[in-house]
């Protein structure tokens, strides 16, 4: 996928943002699936392991990454993503 020289900066920036978003997704996908894959599986019976009113695996496997994912989203949207002029010829007429 060679990029010709005539590609605009707005397109290149959008592409950079695309890959950062995919990276953020991959990080949290690996976290939740691997952590829960190991710790959410219920083999034993009896008194459940509870933390903050929830099964303990939910805290580290869902709640904590959820909070971090929202933080990453805020960073991405407010600090990394750049503004682009979306107007085109038709609009500006």
């Amino acid at each position: 996928m060679q990029e010709p020289e005539e590609l605009g900066e707005s397109f290149r920036q959008s592409k950079r943002e695309f890959w950062v978003m995919v990276g953020i997704w991959a990080f949290f996908a690996i976290w939740t699936v691997s952590y829960n894959g190991f710790f959410a599986d219920g083999g034993s019976e009896g008194e459940p392991d509870i933390l903050f009113g929830m099964p303990s695996w939910v805290i580290m496997g869902v709640a904590v990454p959820w909070v971090l994912a929202v933080s990453a989203t805020i960073w991405f949207a407010m600090c990394f993503m750049k503004d682009t002029d979306l107007r085109d010829e038709e609009d500006s007429e």
Binding site: F11, M21, W25, N36, M54, W66, A69, T73, F76
Partner: peptide, 26 residues
């Protein structure tokens, strides 16, 4: 277990809104 099932929603806003929106609009 549904907490795990729905966990993808933690990154839905950034992906579903961010991945295509700017380019689609443009």
């Amino acid at each position: 277990v549904l907490a795990w099932w729905i966990a993808g929603y933690m990154v839905v806003p950034i992906i579903a809104l961010g991945l295509l929106a700017k380019r689609i609009n443009q």
